[in-house]
Each structure stands twice: as C-alpha cells, then as structure tokens.
Computed example of a mutant assay.
Amino acid sequence: MVGSEGYVPSPCTLDPEQVAEHPDASLLPDDLWERIDAWEGDEDDLDEDAVLYQSDLSIAPGWKAGGFASWHATDRADVLCVCGARTDLLVTVASKEWDGASRSWIPLEDRPTADDMDANIPTHVTVGRWGSMNVFLCRADHTHPPQLSFQD
C-alpha cells in the first residue's frame, strides 16, 4: 500500500496490551451520562491533567482488536451484516495512535518520545484523510463477508 506521500507502511514492533475502554457517551443511559458530567465538573475549571470520559476513558484510539468503534466523523450507526444480523468490531486500523485529546492512551513506553515528530504514526499507514477503518464481523455467521466503516 503506497500513501499519497509515496510511503509504504513502516516495519514496526507489535506490542499488544490489554486496556479497558468504555462505550461512547451516546451509548450511555441519560442518568449515567448526567452523573459523569457532574463528576467531570465545569469545563472552565479543568486543568490539563483532568480526566474526561470521552477522551480518557471511552474508545481507545489507534490500532486495536475488538472494543468499541469510534464514530468521531459521523453519527453512531448499527453495522449490520448482509444477512441482517448485528456485527461485532473485529479490528480498527487507524492513521494515528493518539492525538492531543487522547494523550492518556499513550503507552507508558512511548511517553518519553510522545512529542517527537510522527511518534503517534509508527506505521505510516494513512486511512482516508487521517481517519480510521473499522472491520466488523457477523455475529450469526463468521463466514459472511466483513463489513467496513470508515471514519475520516
């Protein structure tokens, strides 16, 4: 795969780690979201180390297996198989591993160099306009073709 800049993906080491992520706020019951909103406090009073649900606790950025899909470019949508069954997120291929709003997700081993140029794009894979591709599999029959969702 050659990107618009003429790069091919860079070889890199895969260092999988298990993380706990939570659903997007749009999936939470209203009463729970109200409690989270109260816990976060007033936006004007937050310091740079404040922990926020959307950026620090829900939907880990970057390449991942499983978890929750990000719907940052569109409204959330149910991804259905061609047979009509619901699907599960298999893998996310992302252009960046983190950004300024998701720094809490930076792996500990990457923190010393996190501010270096391109530190958050170790593979040099660009999906669309710096977005991500989510691959979903049918819950009813894993032999059905995968469904894709692109978020630019």
Rank of each mutant, 00 (worst) to 15 (best):
M117I: 06
G62A: 09
S58G: 04
D45W: 10
R103Q: 13
N120K: 01
D24Y: 02
A69I: 00
G84D: 13
R103S: 10
R103M: 10
T113A: 03
A119S: 07
V51I: 15
L46N: 02
C81G: 11
A25P: 01
A60V: 01
N120C: 09
R35Q: 11
P107S: 09
S104V: 03
P107W: 08
I59Q: 02
L108R: 10
P16R: 00
E34S: 15
G66K: 05
H22C: 15
A69S: 08
W39Y: 15
G100P: 06
A85Y: 15
D15H: 11
A38F: 08
P11S: 14
D30I: 14
R35D: 10
D49F: 11
K96F: 08
L28N: 06
I36E: 01
T74P: 00
A38S: 12
A101H: 15
R111P: 04
A20C: 13
D78K: 10
E48F: 02
A119H: 04
D78H: 03
C81K: 09
D115E: 14
S26K: 08
D118K: 05
P107M: 09
S70A: 11
W98P: 02
L89R: 05
L89A: 05
A20T: 15
D116I: 04
L52A: 07
G67P: 07
D88S: 07
D49L: 10
R86M: 12
A94D: 09
A50Y: 07
L80Q: 08
G84S: 12
S102L: 01
G62N: 03
E17T: 15
C12G: 13
L90W: 06
D31F: 07
E97I: 03
D37G: 08
T113R: 10
A60R: 03
W63Y: 07
T92F: 01
E48L: 05
S95K: 06
E34H: 10
A50G: 00
W63V: 04
E21V: 09
R86K: 11
G66T: 06
E97P: 02
D49H: 09
A119D: 01
L14A: 13
I36C: 05
V51H: 07
V51Q: 09
P112T: 04
T13H: 06
Q54R: 14
S95C: 09
D78C: 00
